[in-house]
Design a binder for these strands. Structure first.
Length: 264
DNA sequence: AAGTGAATCAACCGCCAGACG
DNA sequence: ACGTCTGGCGGTTGATTCACT
């Protein structure tokens, strides 16, 4: 029994990604789009699991990602959505353009969870902790006014470990429908990623190779992408974000259409 | 200055559901 | 209808960084 591993374990590199690997992956995705993650490592010349490539791209390399800590509005929205959706991080992330489920999950576990506990609120049920003895209550949608949870000046983060670059998105940027922030890429505070998306990086023909030189036609991808077209493609990233990453759907979404039923 | 513990977050793992043949 | 494959999700781990003593 047992599932077949998602990829051949032998020869597959694990651990932190190097700048070189990032280059290859970004180049490949820019050239050929996201298709068949299983084939990406081979075609891109990476010794990585396809799953790992997808994760690296979606969590770190995507051009539409915001960097830095969640701002106050985003944090409030996360808490609110968690009260409605539970640990469905991907659905929560879908409401915060530029944020990943992994990022939100981490933020929840490191900051928000502790803060709620500190305030006597059970992060799992969003009910006061002292009620825990009573029989299990069903999750009550948005039972608390979370506005009061965000203490003035803390921005939700008591820690001084970071330089609070989370405020890259101005507070009050949330729109009427609850969306927060913009979907513009902001990698300024992350030098490696900033470099990857810089013109210098993208124009570097020394790495802008055609992967392993294999024929991608079988995957429905063109093998003749020129440097120019890649640059043009990148320059259009803002627009492409709408189509390629489905960001436009966020703009048209409303909380009411959230899949509260979920599959789990 | 060095040691230690805590905090953070990128990355991995295993499972699940949908697509496809 | 069934089995396999793939992408996606949520939970967890572990390396790194930071604060404190």
């Amino acid at each position: 029994m047992g599932r077949q591993p998602c990829c051949d374990k032998l020869g597959v590199k694990k651990g932190p990604w190097t700048a070189e690997e990032d280059k290859k992956l970004v180049n490949f995705i820019l050239s050929h789009g996201q298709c068949c993650w299983r084939a990406v490592p081979k075609l891109a010349g990476l010794r990585r699991c396809g799953k790992s490539c997808r994760l690296r791209w979606t969590n770190y390399l995507r051009p539409d990602l915001k960097r830095g800590l969640l701002n106050e509005d985003e944090e409030k929205l996360v808490i609110d959505l968690h009260a409605r959706l539970g640990n469905r991080w991907s659905k929560i992330a879908a409401r915060l353009p530029g944020r990943t489920d992994n990022e939100i999950k981490n933020h929840w576990n490191t900051y928000i969870k502790k803060k709620l506990i500190k305030m006597g609120i059970d992060p799992a049920t969003h009910q006061p902790l002292h009620k825990q003895e009573s029989p299990r209550e069903s999750r009550v949608p948005c039972p608390t006014n979370y506005d009061q949870l965000i203490l003035p000046g803390t921005c939700g983060h008591a820690s001084s470990r970071t330089d609070n670059s989370s405020t890259t998105t101005p507070a009050g940027n949330s729109s009427v429908d609850g969306r927060v922030g913009s979907s513009e890429p902001n990698n300024d505070d992350d030098p490696p990623v900033s470099f990857i998306w810089s013109d210098v990086f993208l124009d570097d023909s020394s790495w802008n190779f055609q992967a392993t030189g294999e024929d991608y036609s079988e995957l429905g991808a063109s093998n003749s992408t020129s440097d120019d077209s890649i640059s043009t493609w990148f320059l259009d990233c803002a627009d492409i974000g709408d189509e390629f990453f489905g960001l436009s759907c966020f703009n048209d979404m409303d909380l009411s259409i959230l899949d509260l039923g979920g599959k789990h």
